[in-house]
Write a protein that binds this DNA or RNA. Structure first.
Lengths: 112, 112
DNA sequence: GCCTTAGTACGATAACCGCCGTACTACGAT
DNA sequence: ATCGTAGTACGGCGGTTATCGTACTAAGGC
């Protein structure tokens, strides 16, 4: 039997499904906030974003996976596979449309 | 012995002690977000603010106390006693100085 | 085919959090 | 002084979360 060729698409919430509490909770963790700010430094274009392993984190790989997933499921980041790497980038436009000014304010605050 | 006339002053973090993660965490709970938006509707002047009991919440009194305390310790609200009531109000100015645009963005997002 | 690199799924553990009820204190009114 | 109202402190319960290690899958290079 075919080993069901694992899903290469990742589930993301639709823009209108993004909930404020969930976003705030996702960003309230130091590790995840760090991920968000790191991704903020990278571009958001189609080819932009950073691989999980590019972002240096003081936790194990499996914990990092967990945090990236929380951010993705909250609608903060978008993830897609590119070869063996998984590229992540902020969903700036979606968040700006839904919660104007929020992400910018958080990133600016985190930078200080 | 005098029953040590209970402390009527409540501990608040200094403006520079307010941490972003803590604020985000405080606001990431539906009940607390509701409190914040309710207080946002009231003024912030010296005599303004609302008593805990003014904000209708779908939880018990002791749980409400807990949520107010989380908000206060995060630096989101200021609380002071007035008679038997405890008045709460947002620390708009302090938050604006420390994290410009953040509180407004959250309150505006919560309103929608 | 085999190895390396990147990331994941799973299970376990320990901490945290939200919630409650009960018993209590503080203040003001009667 | 007694009572009612407003809020608190404490302890407990149950669910969620952050963390890890281990074992695994996927893609690409040799």
């Amino acid at each position: 039997m075919p080993t069901t060729t694992a899903v290469r698409e990742l589930p993301h919430p639709a823009p209108e499904e993004i909930r404020l509490e969930t976003v705030l909770h996702a960003l309230s963790d130091p590790i995840r906030l760090r991920i968000a700010t790191a991704l903020g430094a990278h571009g958001e274009g189609d080819g932009a974003g950073a691989a999980c392993s590019q972002v240096e984190l003081p936790v194990s790989a499996s914990t990092a996976t967990h945090h990236f997933r929380v951010l993705r499921e909250a609608g903060v980041i978008k993830q897609c596979y590119r070869g063996t790497a998984k590229i992540s980038c902020l969903r700036r436009a979606d968040l700006e449309a839904r919660f104007p000014g929020l992400l910018d304010a958080v990133l600016r605050a985190a930078a200080s």
